[in-house]
Design a protein around this nucleic acid. Structure first.
Lengths: 109, 109
DNA sequence: CTTTGTGCTTGCATTTTGCAAGTTAGAATC
DNA sequence: GATTCTAACTTGCAAAATGCAAGCACAAAG
């Protein structure tokens, strides 16, 4: 479980996604990634232990969900929850360090 | 200098502000903080070495600027640059983990 | 029942963070 | 102009997070 540093909703959100990887995982989902190997294939080369831990954390926080086909058939198959989807507009706005005119696509999965 | 992991503008932005503190510093500026001690006074208790390093990084990245009153009279006196201000809308959207109906104020400095 | 591929876990070196204490430089007081 | 005060950092070191490489589990294919 994640500890919240304060009552501030922004700080609380950053307690979940305030690291170099979590928001990139959400970004990858926006552009179509749904499986563990999809996330691994992104341009930024996340390591497997970090990916597994972040997926667990994002799931615990209710931002993503596993499509738990009962009796453990499909593994992986992650999807954004409504709460996770609520972060996407913020993500779209989070690119002032990009080169170009801030009007391109979100980039590869 | 910060290394960029990929060409993705979101990843590049996270290479600058993708940690637990940078965006909280920007949030504090939105609600009025301008000095080192203002930042230290926020509810989340950032430590001094991290604060000093983040201020330097944010300044290097062009997201904030020191109001360098010539001949070093006022120290501190940080302000958002246009590029830094461009992140504020994203910040506003980054609070799905907050309690309540997602319609409150940004919280204390 | 062996092989293959996906989805993780583990071990360990490196890096980042947090905490406490110390230093520096203007500002105020004498 | 020396002394004291205080805001603004810097430094040292322990603790936690990260990155890398290797290994394991388990289902599906042959």
């Amino acid at each position: 479980m994640v500890e919240f540093r304060s009552q501030c909703p922004i700080a609380s959100t950053l307690d979940i996604v305030g690291d170099k990887w979590s928001l990139l995982i959400l970004r990858s989902m926006v552009v179509g990634a749904t499986s563990y190997s999809d996330f691994l294939a992104s341009a930024e080369k996340i390591s497997t232990n970090i990916l597994a831990e972040r997926l667990r954390r994002l799931e615990d926080a209710g931002l993503i969900a596993r499509a738990t086909a009962r009796q453990g058939s499909i593994r992986g198959a992650y999807a954004l929850t409504p709460r996770g989807a609520a972060l996407i507009p913020a993500l779209q706005g989070a690119r002032p360090m990009g080169r170009g005119q801030h009007s391109g696509q979100m980039g590869g999965a």
